[in-house]
Structure formats: structure tokens, C-alpha cells
Simulated scan of single mutants.
Amino acid sequence: MRVQFLGKDPESQVDNSPTLYATDRDDRVTYIAQGWKVTDPEALAAIGPVPDHETLIEIPEDVLKFYARRYALEEGLS
């Protein structure tokens, strides 16, 4: 699977950057998000059990704008 860099948090520090990538999967549209591992006990309790093969990450809203931009370009909305 190949990935395409979409963008990173403009307020992040070097080597500590929430980032969003698009994949080239044939079977469905997916994205890979690099972010902060969720460790807050209150958040984890509210979310509930997470399967061992999954994890929870937190990314800034600004990073999601890269998805919106890509979607708008693909749909001819911009």
C-alpha cells in the first residue's frame, strides 16, 4: 500500500507532527493519521474497550482540513 502525504499540523514541532496521509487501497478509501496516542483515563473510559489490533489517536482539527481540501479537489468543489 502506498501513501500520499496530505499535510501536517502547522503548529507542530519538528519530529512531533500530527499528520494525515491518503492511501491507494483498491477495496476502499482509507487514510492514515499520525497523532498523539490517547492516554487520558477519562477519554479512554468514555470510549470503552479498543481491540488489541487498533489504537486511538488524537489529531488537531487543522489536520482534518487537509482531508477536506483533497475531497473538494476530487469532487470538483473548489
Rank of each mutant, 00 (worst) to 15 (best):
R25G: 10
L20W: 01
E74C: 11
D27T: 01
A33M: 04
I32E: 10
L44I: 08
P51T: 12
V38K: 15
E61T: 14
G76C: 09
F5H: 14
P18V: 01
G76I: 07
A72Q: 01
E11P: 00
K8D: 12
K37C: 10
L77G: 03
E11A: 15
V29C: 09
P18R: 01
K37P: 08
I57F: 05
L56Y: 07
A46S: 06
D9N: 09
D9R: 14
K65Y: 02
T55H: 13
G7V: 01
V38R: 15
A45Y: 06
A68V: 00
N16F: 08
V63E: 09
E54A: 11
E61G: 03
M1Y: 06
E54N: 02
S12A: 13
V38D: 02
D27Q: 07
G76L: 09
R25C: 07
V38S: 03
T39G: 13
D40F: 05
D40A: 10
R2H: 01
D26W: 15
A72H: 04
P60Q: 01
E42V: 04
S78W: 09
T39L: 13
M1R: 12
Y21A: 06
S78V: 01
P41A: 06
D24V: 03
K8R: 13
G7M: 05
A68L: 02
L56S: 05
D40P: 14
W36D: 12
A72T: 14
S12C: 12
G48Q: 10
E61Y: 03
H53T: 03
S12E: 02
I59D: 09
E61D: 03
E42M: 14
L73R: 12
Y71E: 12
P10K: 14
M1P: 04
F66T: 02
I47E: 14
P49S: 09
T19N: 03
R2A: 07
A22Q: 00
A33W: 03
L56F: 13
V3M: 14
A46M: 15
E74V: 13
A72I: 14
S17C: 05
E11D: 13
A43L: 05
T39W: 02
E11R: 12
R69P: 01
T23I: 15
E74S: 07
L56H: 08
A45G: 10
W36S: 14
I57A: 05
A22R: 00
I32V: 14
A33Y: 04
L44K: 03
Y67E: 12
K37N: 10
Y31N: 07
D52T: 09
R70C: 05
Y21P: 00
K65R: 06
L77A: 13
F66S: 08
I47W: 06
G76W: 03
E42F: 06
D62K: 00
Q13V: 02
V38P: 08
D26L: 06
Q13S: 12
S78E: 04
D9P: 00
V3G: 00
R2W: 08
H53S: 10
D9I: 14
L73W: 01
Q4N: 06
L6A: 15
S78I: 00
G7L: 10
I32L: 08
Y21F: 07
A68M: 08
Y71T: 00
P49F: 12
D24N: 05
D27A: 15
E11V: 10
Q34D: 00
L73V: 11
Q34Y: 15
V63T: 10
L20E: 10
D15M: 00
G35P: 11
A33P: 12
S12T: 13
V29R: 12
